[in-house]
Amino acid sequence: MHIVVPVKLVPDLVEELVIDPSGTTLDPDTLRLQLNEFDGHAIEQAILLKERGGGQVTVMAPDVEGVDDVLYTAAAKGADRLIKLCGNFGQSVNNHAMACAVANLIKPLQPDLVLTGVQSHSDLDGSMGPLLAAYLGFPYVGYIAGVTLSDGRAVVRKEYPGGLVAEMEVVLPAVLGIQAADQPPRYVAFTRIRQAMKTASIEEQTVEGLDVSGGPTVSRMYKPEAAARATMIEGKPDEVASRLVELFRELGVL
């Protein structure tokens, strides 16, 4: 069983996001990147599957700031092979271009399973999983919380809003979009990561031909206005309740 996990680094929302003077991208100097949370679950799921049934886990990530930490941490958790994707990854590289290029690198690895995070908060042109699957010609199922493998098939638990779960069977090789691993991503002691830095090696592979044409173009990026303090609603219970009901309507929750 060879499981490939292509992951993505996305803006860390703990940091204040600054819009570039161009007004169409985030300011690269203040941007701090972080492993996409769902990709962390995809790595965990891959390692859990390996621990249960054996096999090899390959984690790949684009060469952006912070990538080495992400890869070594994956190795400390149990990933066998680390691949850094080298190329020119500006913010303009969209998921279609990336998925197409990554698919070309994944094909020769002949994986049985490709796991990705179900989405990231920066997927303007769709999440990686379905795109990757389409370029690979593999089936795709997303929003998965729970995977078991048996003779060439994966049985997955796909979640729908409201908690209903569909159990689906997928013929391998396949791409799965992981929403939550069977167990929350484990903690690795810092000494283990330091060890991995000494013992694991990161392979570099060049990504060529990133074609970003045809995707949505951004003419303006801006921050929604944040109110400094709550707008107070005055009045008797009856009046306030009526106003709240109006608000619920506007918010689309009623």
């Binding site: 279609h96 997927d123 042109d125 769709g126 999983g129 379905p130 809003p161 045809g214």
Partner: peptide, 21 residues
């Protein structure tokens, strides 16, 4: 969990641009 994966797959299959979120 229904629409997002259909949109992504169709976008590649039909060569059509996709706008998410």
């Amino acid at each position: 969990s229904i629409g997002a994966e259909l949109a992504g797959a169709l976008s590649v299959q039909l060569g059509l641009p996709l706008v998410s979120y």
